[in-house]
Nucleic acid binder design. Structure first.
Lengths: 231, 231
DNA sequence: GGGAGACCTTGATCGAGATCAAACTCGACC
DNA sequence: GGTCGAGTTTGATCTCGATCAAGGTCTCCC
């Protein structure tokens, strides 16, 4: 397998600020990997000590109870960072929602490299703080919002997240987009059942708030109404 | 107001690894402040740009909806870090649950200082990663656990958190402890109503799983049962 | 383009937890 | 000690979302 050069080039967020010799060093450590939709990102080492960068695609981070209930606790988009440097194994498991390409690093190598490159640690810190903010906002949704509010908030969030996937100028939220989630996965993000999600989608459609041209496609017809519903 | 020297001494987590001149520089930036139970930690600057370290006491981080529903999205114990360096204002508001002492820094000063001291940024990163792990585990609770499971998980979590508040050798989880939360605040942590929390406490008491000598005091009688209930 | 199966929608019913309402407890303060 | 009031418990009822149970639809693959 060749060094994962494209991931360090594409992943501006992680690598910005490193000058060239440092990028070269990071690139020799990373290995590119593809993961098909539905496949887990299996950590190759026995000790489960890997970290990764998303190059392309969307992955979910989930935790489950012993009896099989699942909660999606995070979603990783291109340029996002996956894994848990500097500590015990993260409890979450990672599964690709779409075909994905990632750049994988051994955790030990990555940790050592990060310690030697403060600029990388700084980027990682900013990114982790942002993720924590987002996660806390989601706690509000899970603990206190009703099903209609959850669905509306979810659609607005997806609209924002899927807007700036490309590299162009920030174009604002997307009016139409393709969900990387099945109905069950939407339920697992929102702490609902698949039936409730389906009913809420149907209601939004019949109220003329959204159009649903296909199972995965969403077109927002009345953003104001969604924002009102989102609470 | 004098430089906040005790906070940097006591807060090993933030300051470990900095050699003495650096500690001196940090200590000139921080100002000690006390906050009474129930009082918000009001950010003094107009632009709400402060960060802080907890020296003593417990504080809650909350988000609220427009119509007044509240969710506690984090709890800060001694040595924990509060605030949002390197970015826009965090959405959460901070209120002391007990009388508290904190060490406050101007965000700009702190940011600049952190950028110049990679060891501090590293500590901050480890801490933020741990907090993210904890927050994600809480998402599972909020999204997928039943009221009895939530209460049991909460009590076990409190037992762990309140155990190593002191500086002695790690003594394992506490068998009895004083909750820093009112019933309403427990409800706000767990995404329940106060009535449901009260009923679950009463049930655990009459089942002999816990003793409740006073409103705020808890004694765990049957930890195994709690762990079973926690799911 | 036809069949199979995964995924999704819809309907009927149920129940956990919310809501509404009232009594009780405990500590603070006079 | 008595009173006041916030905080808590307990009870009755209601409701939202879960659960149970069919159908329906899209897509993949031959």
């Amino acid at each position: 397998m060749s060094p994962c050069d494209t991931c360090v080039v594409r992943n501006r967020a992680i690598c910005a600020g490193l000058d060239n010799p440092e990028i070269a060093a990071l690139s020799t450590m990373g290995r590119r990997r593809t993961v098909s939709a539905g496949e887990p990102l299996i950590w190759e080492d026995d000790d489960s000590l890997l970290v990764a960068n998303v190059i392309e695609g969307v992955l979910k981070l989930t935790t489950s109870t012993a009896d099989g209930r699942e909660q999606i606790v995070g979603v990783a988009y291109p340029s996002d960072f996956i894994g848990r440097p500097f500590g015990q194994t993260s409890a979450a498991s990672v599964v690709a929602l779409t075909d994905a390409r990632v750049c994988v690093f051994s955790r030990n190598d990555f940790d050592r490299f990060a310690r030697e490159h403060p600029e990388l640690e700084h980027k990682l810190l900013e990114r982790t703080l942002s993720e924590l903010d987002r996660t806390r906002a989601w706690m509000m949704l899970l603990g206190r919002k009703s099903a209609p509010e959850k669905i509306a908030t979810f659609l607005l969030d997806m609209s924002d997240r899927l807007a700036d996937n490309g590299c162009g100028p920030h174009a604002g939220p997307a009016r139409q987009f393709t969900l990387p989630f099945s109905r069950q996965q939407v339920a697992d993000v929102l702490g609902l059942t698949i039936e409730t999600v389906s009913r809420q989608f149907t209601k939004l459609k019949s109220d003329g708030v959204v159009a649903l041209p296909s199972r995965r496609d969403v077109e927002i017809l009345d953003r104001g109404a969604l924002q009102l519903l989102a609470g």
